[in-house]
């Protein structure tokens, strides 16, 4: 099941579980835009422990650098695109998929 479509505003969960977590620490709690729906992959956070993984949709999510780092010194159009699995994404506040 694919919850988000290209252009959807999404927020990365502010969660801090232990284990083989694949959402970078610095992007948690930040809001971005779905750039691409990549496809379905086994959840690496379960695969890492030899469990039978659930299938998760993987997205490429685009963030404005100025939204990620306070004090980013580059121009306003600079961006960061991160591969993030669906279990780490919530709809951004005010955006209902």
């Amino acid at each position: 099941m694919t919850r988000y479509t290209i252009g959807a505003a999404v927020a990365v969960r502010s969660a801090y579980p232990p284990g083989h977590v694949r959402a970078p620490f610095f992007i948690r709690g930040k809001t971005g835009t779905v750039e691409q729906v990549v496809g379905s992959f086994g959840n690496p956070e379960e695969l890492a422990y030899g469990r039978n993984p659930e299938q998760l949709t993987l997205y490429r999510v685009r963030f404005q650098q100025a939204d990620v780092w306070s004090g980013y010194t580059g121009p306003g159009q600079d961006t960061l695109v991160i591969d993030i699995y669906e279990n780490w994404l919530d709809p951004a506040a005010g955006d209902h998929p």
């Binding site: 990549v38 992959f41 121009p75 961006t79 591969d83």
Partner: peptide, 15 residues
């Protein structure tokens, strides 16, 4: 140049 977007791709997953 400042008028060009620098787009960083963080390859964290299956790509």
């Amino acid at each position: 140049d400042d008028n060009i977007e620098v787009r960083v791709h963080d390859s964290t997953a299956d790509l």
